[in-house]
């Protein structure tokens, strides 16, 4: 009809660290858009502070990180602690990169990183994961 009143889900896609390119992050961002999500794309070289401040200003429902640098065991915990400080406890935190099962378990158990996706994960898997998590939060 005229104006839609439904709840749009907003996802930050960020690439922390100094390394490399953001091709992977862009592909994920576009796939999320095509699944109907509003993606706020922050680009390269984002510090944990920048990512959390962006999530706060954008009132994001989720933060997805693309990590290649191997710094995941410092970056995820840092982001989680900043999220706690800012009271962003309802925001989904997930990411992709080359992360061992052991690290993924630690991130999940100790820092509530709910989804870790290795290289080769299909985009459909990631989208379904986000949908499920949003559903659990009553946002979809």
């Amino acid at each position: 009809m005229s104006e839609q009143d439904f709840n749009h889900i907003r996802i930050i896609v960020a690439k922390p660290g100094l390394d490399g390119h953001d091709r992977g992050a862009k592909v994920v961002a576009r796939a999320l858009r095509d699944a109907g999500f509003e993606v706020i794309y922050t680009g390269l070289r984002q510090t944990p502070e920048m990512i959390v401040n962006t999530a706060l200003q954008e009132d994001a429902d989720a933060i997805g990180l693309s990590l290649l640098s191997g710094a995941h065991m410092t970056i995820f915990p840092r982001i989680r602690s900043l999220m706690d400080e800012q009271g962003l406890d309802d925001v989904l935190l997930f990411g992709g990169g080359i992360i061992s099962q052991e690290d993924a378990d630690t991130l999940h158990d100790d820092y509530s990183v709910n989804g870790i996706f290795g290289p080769g994960t299909s985009l459909d898997t990631i989208i379904q994961f986000v949908k499920d998590e949003m559903g659990r939060r009553g946002k979809l």
Binding site: R33, E38, I40, M50
Partner: peptide, 17 residues
Amino acid sequence: SGGAVLGDRIRMSEHTN
């Protein structure tokens, strides 16, 4: 899809904090 990729912030990163 009704979705979007919003990329204007990329150029404004220096003011995020």
